[in-house]
Amino acid sequence: MTIIPKVQIEQVSIKYQTLDGETNALENICLAIGEGEFVSIVGPSGCGKSTLLSLISGLLKPTAGRVLVDGKPPQTSSQKLGYMLQQDYLFEWRTVYKNIMLGLEIQGKDKHSVKNKVHNLLKQYGLWGFRHYYPHQLSGGMRQRVALIRTLAVDPEILLLDEPFAALDYQTRLTLEEEVATILKRANKTVILVTHDISEAVAMSDRVVVISRRPGRVKADFAIRYAAGRLSPFETRKAPEFRDYFNRIWKELDIHVEGTHAQ
């Protein structure tokens, strides 16, 4: 008997159609992601990383191929997935606390018992004192943390995180990477994380998938293993294998500075 992967992407292609043309965003993507796996997706800007997450979440349907989550096409109503979009899209008419309650309200989970959990999340991420603030009173990094908690609060089995730490300063970023990775791995969540930061990808994940320039294809797929076992992001940065992974992914990414390869 073969194990059904948690997320299965079979020869998926997607084109965006607009009145003045079409964009080949992704072409023939194949990926299988197991339960409890922490996978990072890296690739040049515009290669279709966000599109890939939208496909997995069920917000978009592929033009060809199929996406399966637990063996079935994904549906946004299934409440299995938590998707943190690339921008926070906080509702400016709701306070921090009410913004975080949004997902729970929609899924009818805003019962007394979850309030405790939300309180803990707020405290843990340094937002407790700001829970009655409106989004326009927050800094960029705080907004991003609110968006992260909003996603974590509904406690989904699978998390799709689109550059969740991009707006944070370096220290906060390292701390949050550490916390989030530890929490999610302990809870055995399946995580797909999109990032521009190679060291973040290597530090946090069990696996790093490199997507090529548009139309996006899977260019490389690295299993990240450390001799010392499963490490926390903080420890991995000190592990001897870290630099090696970093350099290999960097080569695959094949980043050219704008203009150096003009035809």
Binding site: L59, Q75, I106
Partner: peptide, 11 residues
């Protein structure tokens, strides 16, 4: 995008 956001929660 706000509608997209709330749809990710299954609204």
């Amino acid at each position: 995008n706000k509608i997209k956001l709330i749809r990710t929660f299954g609204a």
